[in-house]
Design a protein around this nucleic acid. Structure first.
Lengths: 120, 120
DNA sequence: TTGACACATTCCGATATGGGCATATGATGC
DNA sequence: GCATCATATGCCCATATCGGAATGTGTCAA
């Protein structure tokens, strides 16, 4: 099998760049399929397929509006991801502190180089 | 192709449940491959493969320690995910408010039912 | 050097995915 | 009913992925 099962959870759903883009677009309100497809430069069937996945994992909802079907963001579907990420919050500051340290080290190293060596 | 390219970014890397578990374990500090494999009930080659993916997207770092190789979490790799998720923050409260409303409606509906109908 | 241990890589098979294209389904208006 | 527009599905192909088993590589000890 490729990937545990189907794109059966939010994590898999947002692993696809185009699906992420769809979700971003939907932050601006509900949109019909064709508009999404056009905005993202994909074909209509592709948009439909991605939307199907997003629907199955509960990230979007649909509403019929005449001939059109308006897709709407359902951010609750992102909760699992949000929560999982939450477990790493405490590492953000640490990591960035370490990154800062690194930058400092770099600066210092540069200075020392310019003392004996010169640039490279 | 299945999925844009390889599991070439953090989103893809964390789409795999086992890889997520590895990351969670690594929150407790660096660990050798075998221990990870044992803790997660997977074979050593599998652990190695997942760790390779995690390394390639910058989610873990390795350090040789004698015969062992200690893997360490690098939470900075989660930044793209964190930032992308951030774009949806404002929907959390909204969604949950809406969920609360829904719960309220349910309660009310139940009460009204118990007036004319009875339970159900 | 040889052996033991920890880990990485490779090859295989099964399966799922995304893209492209054709086509089916659905709703609307005439 | 019929034509049309909007969307959903089905099919095929190329490719990537995961799992399993075998094997390669690296390190340490004697």
């Amino acid at each position: 099998m490729a990937r545990a099962a189907a794109a059966s959870d939010a994590f898999n759903a947002i692993a696809e760049p185009q699906r992420r883009q769809i979700l971003v677009l939907l932050r601006g309100g509900e949109r019909p399929v064709t508009e999404l497809a056009r905005n993202l430069g994909m074909t209509q069937p592709q948009a439909s397929k991605h939307l199907r996945v997003l629907r199955e994992v509960g990230l979007v909802r649909v509403r019929g509006a005449g001939k059109q079907r308006l897709y709407d963001l359902d951010a609750r579907g992102l909760r699992p991801v949000h929560e999982w990420m939450g477990g790493f919050e405490r590492f953000w500051s640490e990591s960035f502190d370490r990154l800062d340290e690194y930058v400092q080290e770099l600066k210092q190293a540069r200075q020392e180089e310019s003392h004996d060596g010169d640039d490279q």
